[in-house]
Design a binder for these strands. Structure first.
Length: 447
RNA sequence: GUGAGUGUAGCUCAGUUGGUUAGAGUGCCAGGUUGUGGCCCUGGAGGUCGUGGGUUCGACUCCCAUCACUCACCCCA
């Protein structure tokens, strides 16, 4: 015999989990549609050259590669890879469909694959839920991306969350004006860890990366102009005069976005300007966002930003774009932690069983009537003694049991028992449905 | 890719300084009379102690390797 094992970082979803996932997906896609985004799907596999070089050197190594068919594969060559995110495939799709009317607003919920080590809330195959606006450089597009995240997380009743925003060019300006523009990456990589390692930790890493103390002192002075507690627009206003012209332009861009976000109805308290927010993906060029919750300490729930150069790598001319990605697995982790899930679920409203073989046809006729009336019906394929029929219904949390025995079959009736309180009836076919419909709602975690 | 920890019944875990037939709870199955679930009582099935070596008279227990999982780092959804 072979031992049954699932591949590392991959998961099966049992019915209980599937019901939760589908419910969240339904809510998200409804919000996306409400914002006027259109659905799209792209293949799991992309040509390797489409994927490579878009995410940064580190991330390229996390792309799953597929061996070539035939001779090349035996020699270890690969030409295809599993998609690493939904943004790069979107850029490819837009470049291949020049007739699409721009701006193109699309939503997409599909799995992506990353070959890193699994951890809490982190898997090798996971579902991303993306919305993007391609073909507009207006800050309205940025603002809508923030607003749709806010609407989605609000619709899911996730509790408290915070959307952090920053701007790639603000970061660059901070490095420039402190004289370490040539070490921008070193500045960012260390700064991004501030929440985990604190100021001292960042200082230590900056020093280790060869930044002169004079520069790091000036960086801190800049960062202190925009304290975390401050209202985002105040923080931006305080920082602006200290930056280069490029940085000031970026600040103004962010200010416009935040004003528009407010106009779209997002409470100001949800937004925080975070000058330490860097984000890893190479393709971002402007505003960047990230959503975090306080509750379980997992990574961000969503991430995104503006990427005005990505489509151009496939097209030869740039098309501006901005988008966000919500992580379904992390959303579910938060929902589960918050316990807003309700109890276990039932596979059906009524269980139908026959006491012996001769009664099966009559039982099936009853099930057909239930189903025709839209009631989900679980049929016991083998005849069951009364005790077992009720036990099955009880353990599956099915609220009603309908049983046909010799007496009922002879009389043309069905025995119906309401499991919650033990009320029971023997009824002709025509009288069954009102009793079913009047009963307690079918237990369902997703309401 | 780096570091640490854990692997005993379907599930959650006990298992004393190495010593006879490896336990509990839960779940599962069957009973507690006639066509009635949950609660209670009784009984039962179920384990190559992750796998492979080694040390020893003797290994679930000690050592090595290997695999799997978990957590942290890196990075991210």
């Amino acid at each position: 015999m072979q031992k049954a094992l699932i591949a590392r970082g991959m998961r099966d979803f049992l019915p209980e989990a599937m019901r939760r996932r589908r419910r969240v997906i339904e809510i998200l896609s409804a919000v996306f549609e409400r914002f006027g985004f259109e659905p799209v799907e792209t293949p799991a596999l992309e040509r390797l050259e489409t994927l490579e070089g878009k995410y940064g050197e580190e991330s390229d190594r996390l792309i799953y590669r597929v061996l070539k068919r035939g001779q090349g594969g035996e020699e270890g060559e690969s030409d295809l890879g599993l998609r690493y995110d939904l943004t790069v495939p979107l850029a490819r799709l837009v470049a291949m469909n020049p007739d699409l009317p721009l701006p193109f607003r699309r939503w997409q919920i599909q799995p992506v694959w990353r070959a890193d080590r699994p951890q809490r809330g982190r898997y090798r195959e996971f579902l991303q839920c993306d919305v993007d606006v391609v073909g507009s450089s207006s800050p309205v597009a940025d603002a809508e991306c923030i607003a749709v995240v806010d609407a989605a997380l609000t619709a899911l009743d996730l509790g408290e969350f915070e959307i952090r925003v920053n701007h790639r060019r603000v970061l660059r300006a901070m490095a420039d004006v402190t004289g370490v523009g040539h070490k921008e990456t070193d500045v960012l990589v260390a700064l991004d860890k501030i929440e985990r390692v604190g100021r001292e930790g960042v200082d230590a890493e900056w020093a280790a990366r060869g930044l002169p103390p004079r520069a790091t002192a000036r960086l801190w002075a800049l960062l202190d102009l925009a304290p975390a507690a401050a209202r985002p627009l105040d923080a931006l206003a305080a920082l602006e005069p200290a930056l280069s012209e490029e940085g000031r332009a970026a600040v103004r861009d962010l200010e416009r976005i935040l004003h528009l976000v407010g106009a779209l109805g997002v409470p100001e308290a949800r937004i925080r300007f975070d000058p330490t927010l860097a984000r890893g993906l190479d393709y971002y060029t402007g505003a960047v966002f990230e959503t975090v919750v306080v509750a379980p300490r997992i990574g961000s729930l969503s991430g995104g930003g503006r990427y005005d150069r990505l489509v151009g790598t496939f097209l030869g001319r740039d098309i501006p774009a901005v988008g966000v990605s919500l992580g379904l697995e992390r959303i579910l982790a938060v929902i589960e932690e918050a316990g807003t899930l309700g109890g276990p679920t039932a596979p059906a409203r009524v269980l139908v069983a026959a006491l012996d073989d001769a009664c099966l046809p009559a039982a099936l006729e009853a099930s057909a009537r239930f189903r025709a009336a839209g009631q989900s019906t679980w049929v016991a394929p083998e005849p069951l003694p009364m005790k077992k029929a009720l036990r099955q219904a009880d353990r599956r949390r099915i609220p009603f049991a309908a049983v046909v025995g010799p007496d009922e079959a002879a009389a043309g009736t069905t025995f119906l028992r309401r499991m919650a309180d033990g009320a029971q009836w023997v009824l002709p076919a025509a009288d069954l449905l009102p009793h079913l419909e009047a009963g307690p709602p079918t237990p369902d975690a997703t309401g």
